[in-house]
Design a binder for these strands. Structure first.
Length: 107
DNA sequence: GGGCTGACTGACG
DNA sequence: ACGTCAGCCAGCC
């Protein structure tokens, strides 16, 4: 019992809470940090049921946007991220995703 | 204890 | 380039 005390769900919550202002992370990246890069979908499910106080708006998919299901709509998230200084492209995805991607292992 | 779901990702046509 | 299909795994019924 080491990490058993905290399930995958708890790890994701912690990582999301660690995302700084003006930065974003992809589901696959978060899942990988939790130990399962292929559990990206699980991260999404956790987001829906996890702590609403966490900045889930900074969590985006590989395209730098939302596939579907974000609270209020993906348009809402774009507005939130733009408010943090993140620039979006006319296509609705982050203009320079790699530039705003948060790298916790590089901290 | 078993089975379905899904805020994803990557591959294929 | 865009649309669709299959795989993956933790969480929930």
């Amino acid at each position: 019992m080491s990490e058993d005390m905290a399930g995958f769900r708890d790890r994701v919550s912690v990582i999301v809470s660690q995302i700084p202002h003006g930065r974003v992370m992809t589901y696959g990246q978060i899942a990988a940090l939790c130990g399962n890069a292929r559990a990206a979908r699980v991260v999404g499910g956790i987001a829906h049921f996890g702590d609403p106080n966490l900045p889930w708006q900074r969590v985006v998919n590989r395209k730098g946007g939302m596939a579907r299901g974000y609270y209020g709509g993906r348009k809402t998230q774009q507005r939130e991220l733009e408010s943090e200084g993140i620039v979006f492209d006319a296509e609705g995805h982050i203009a320079d995703l790699q530039n705003v991607l948060w790298h916790p292992e590089l901290s």
